[in-house]
Design a protein around this nucleic acid. Sequence first.
RNA 1: UGGGGAAUGGUGCAAUUGGUAGCACGCCUGACUCUGGAUCAGGAAGUUGGGGGUUCGAGUCCUCCUUCCCCAGCCA
Length: 568
Amino acid sequence: MSTNGNPPPSDFIRQIVADDVAAGNNGGRVHTRFPPEPNGYLHIGHAKAICINFGVAAEFGGPCNLRFDDTNPVKEEQEYIDAIIEDVRWLGFDWADRLYYASDYFEAMYGWAEELVQKGRAYVDDQTADEIRAARGSLTEPGVESPHRNRPAAESLDLFRRMRAGEFPDGTRVLRAKIDMAHPNINLRDPIMYRIVHAAHPRQGDAWCIYPMYDWAHGLEDSIEGITHSLCSLEFENHRPLYDWFIDAINDGRDEPIHHPRQYEFARFNLTHTVMSKRKFRRMVEEGHVSGWDDPRLSTLRGLRRRGFPPEAIRNFMQRIGVSKVASTVDYALLEHCVREVLNRTSPRVMAVLNPLKVVVTNYPEGQSEELDAINNPEDEAAGTRKVPFGRELFIERDDFMEDPPRKFFRLAPGREVRLRYAYFITCQEAVKDASGQVVELRCTYDPATRGGDAPDGRKVKATLHWVSAAHAVDAEVRLYGQLFTEEFPEAKEGQDFLDCLNPDSLTTVSAKVEPSLAGAEPLKRVQFERLGYFCLDPDTTDEKLIFNRTCTLRDTWAKIQKRGRDA
RNA sequence: UGGGGAAUGGUGCAAUUGGUAGCACGCCUGACUCUGGAUCAGGAAGUUGGGGGUUCGAGUCCUCCUUCCCCAGCCA
């Protein structure tokens, strides 16, 4: 799914897949899957795996399944299943009727496990968790074989069946693969295949009290679904030999071998100014540092959605960061670039004043108003035009006026003429101040001949300001977001907790005045506030109060000039 | 100290598989502009982690070294 006319991605995984197709492997078939565990909400890190799996399949004309890896009932919940489905769909992917659950394969897995026991390739171990851990050895020392390792297959089979039947309490026995306790790859030191857990499963209820471990289950799930290319992240590279061992062990002596998927691993990525783990998100939510899993500052998919990120932008971003095996940290600016790229093309423009300063147009008749034509989106002619009301009293942005402007400030100042977008040229005659010296009102004159925004005599102005008519403006709450973390790499320093880097100013709320066309907008509606940025109507919006989230600012040259001045 | 991976401008990726390093983001100029937006034009920035070797020629091949990531859950 190329969404932006970029050349189709080419990376080491796609090359492998292309080679397989060319060689006729798997009958030329390509079938992938995205296999989340329903134990939390998806974040932008998952979006990479989603885009790769669904993307590769689509590019090669094959299907991609959505499969829940629900093998651990103590951590998984239906709520997460529903949320993940919603998020993957929002990201723009479709799995037709191929929504699967690992738990639906429990019976088949169990059958294969019994076969391995009968073949002497797996055994029931009575050791405690501590004993097993102690006997596993270390990175440099081999492990020690369990005293139960060589008990008769019939005895293990009996015990395994009784494990399933619920005769034993949690933690008393496990089923282990009989591989090699001295293997240099620790994953192959007689890994556990089943543990006893008397817990209700979100989908299986109390049908089971033994549950398969990920390593045993995952390859089998892929096998059952006929997955050709199991694409996952790098930390599972060490596990691949085990998946291969399991499939080979099942197929050993079998007339009709089960399908043997091949796994390929790619690197996850980090994003500057954020964290990327369910554990950390959970902590921020539970400790109240953010409002919830969908807080617009969070890079959960729900957070990004509420923030106003278009799914297309996230997909483009994933395409831009590519696929490799290198640990990477992507600049947040690239994500913002992708967001602006699609929002610039698609967002209706609208005028809103975030920090209102009152302007009285002294030569405009009192009580009069008129409607002016405004272009909805200069990047999209089909978006048409709308009417914007104008009157004697207006609001402009406080930042757009300076009583004593520096050289490069082009906007309004005493005696200076600027354009009000789509309206008139106005000239500032006087700045009215309160007792404290704060400017509270501007008294300006307008040139009736410049209606619509152009001067018949051809004279130019240096600046165009956005504005709203005071009589027609609608009040709105606008939530301005900054980086959640002050550091590019939260927690990068020794002994520092990532929460130490929380930005205390990541959320600022202002009372704004917006043009009346915004009244009644539907939640999640994305717009551009001219000259300010992209905004999205928050679902907290009520009939009484509009609430907007700032998705991101526009690129702002003036802000850059100011910043340079400050730094200098 | 065991095993598995990885090193290319600041960042993320390319390099027709041995032919003389390119793209994007970011940054800096300038043009244009009824958004200081967008757009357009240009620029700075790489001894391809390091040493040795093979070759007419190495980011690509060999070799030694360095650094970084992952693995010792009855988590996934």
